[in-house]
């Protein structure tokens, strides 16, 4: 690969449709994402349609800072969409990627992001088969925005959806909550935080495949990203027309995440995750599902954290470790540090 496309800064000509753009696409994107479908240079990717049900999902990624312990916007853009596809119990097949670059953005940084994205896609085994690049004037973007879309295939017999939770079902989580959100928040310079935290950003489709193989009757899968576990539980409660009862003591939270939340007045249940999933299954399958999750590296700290209840109000409640009860509500507004 020529290093020419990794020096200097993004200029308006990089999105102008001329030779500079062609060179950027060729030397940076195609070289990094290299695969048969992308190499054909068509305006679209053509592939054979598998039989059965397909799923499709898309997500946009805007994050500050662009690089953080445990990942960057590139790896996040792959993991996020792979996970959204996987939460149907599906096997992700292909990704698309669209970049909006801001004039003046260092090409070296873009190179790092694209390399990281390519590495994440290769590790996940889900190639980026089509893409697009646009450049906006300086001041009209935040360095780089990435939108990815993904398609995948649902294995026969798998029926997973947010409306399928039933009273009595078990609620499981694949590991510690809040790692990604607290990592990002702690990097805000105004807070001056120093932590050893890392984002949990990861592609979860391998874990999902093991779970589906172990418990085909799995009812719901969701990745608790923005709004955290609280938002996901409320979403499922609403879609399924049920209530939830969580057990606070069973929910895994790292000591550092807990401490940072105490310092900022935040609730770990509202903090974002990028490599965790919530699963709901019939109670008789819970132990088997938990064993399957714990056998996978991304589910090593999985736990049964509650049960689905019959509740006309669709309340998500929690038995607190202290011995009381409370509602676990949606995050109200944006997640901001409190002083009071």
């Amino acid at each position: 690969m020529s290093t020419g496309s990794r020096q200097g800064r993004v200029e308006m000509t990089h999105g102008g449709g001329g030779r500079a753009m062609a060179r950027l696409v060729e030397e940076l994107f195609v070289a990094a994402f290299d695969n048969d479908l992308l190499r054909r240079r068509d305006d679209q990717a053509q592939f054979a349609a598998p039989t059965g049900r397909m799923v499709m999902s898309t997500d946009s990624f805007v994050i500050s800072p662009l690089f953080f312990p445990g990942g960057d916007i590139g790896s996040l853009a792959v993991h996020g969409t792979v996970n959204d596809v996987a939460m149907a119990g599906a096997r992700p097949l292909y990704l698309s990627a669209a970049f909006i670059l801001e004039e003046g953005f260092p090409l070296a940084d873009l190179g790092r992001i694209v390399d990281s994205m390519a590495a994440a896609s290769k590790e996940a085994g889900v190639p980026v088969v089509t893409g697009d690049t646009k450049v906006v004037e300086r001041g009209k973007g935040d360095g780089v925005f990435i939108t990815t879309a993904g398609v995948g295939m649902v294995p026969d017999g798998v029926e997973i959806g947010g409306d399928r939770a039933r009273p009595g079902d078990a609620v499981l989580i694949s590991g510690t909550i809040g790692d990604h959100g607290m990592t990002i928040l702690s990097l805000r310079e105004s807070l001056g935080f120093e932590t050893g935290l890392r984002s949990d950003s990861a592609a979860l489709h391998g874990l999902v495949a093991d779970m589906v193989a172990s418990v085909p009757g799995l009812r719901c899968l969701r990745d608790p990203t923005r709004g955290g576990l609280a938002a996901t539980m409320n979403e499922i409660a609403g879609l399924s027309g049920v209530g939830m009862m969580l057990d606070e003591a069973a929910i895994p939270v790292r000591a550092e995440v807990r401490a940072a939340c105490e310092l900022l007045g935040l609730d770990p249940l509202h903090v974002a995750n990028e490599g965790k999933l919530v699963a709901i299954c019939p109670p008789e399958n819970a132990d088997r599902l938990l064993a399957a999750m714990r056998a996978h590296p991304l589910g090593a700290q999985a736990a049964i954290i509650g049960r689905v209840t019959d509740d006309p109000h669709h309340f998500v409640q929690m038995e607190t470790a202290f011995g009381g009860r409370r509602i676990v509500d949606w995050l109200n507004g944006e997640q901001l540090p409190r002083i009071c």
């Binding site: 609730d267 038995e319 607190t320 202290f322 011995g323 009381g324 009860r325 409370r326 009071c340």
Partner: peptide, 24 residues
């Protein structure tokens, strides 16, 4: 009181009244 569910641990004769001590 709300976050830890303290009211569930108190007898019904004790009523907690939430005062105005929130500057916001």
């Amino acid at each position: 009181i709300a976050r830890f569910g303290i009211e569930d641990l108190l007898p019904p004769e004790v009523r907690l009244i939430h005062g105005p001590g929130c500057p916001v």
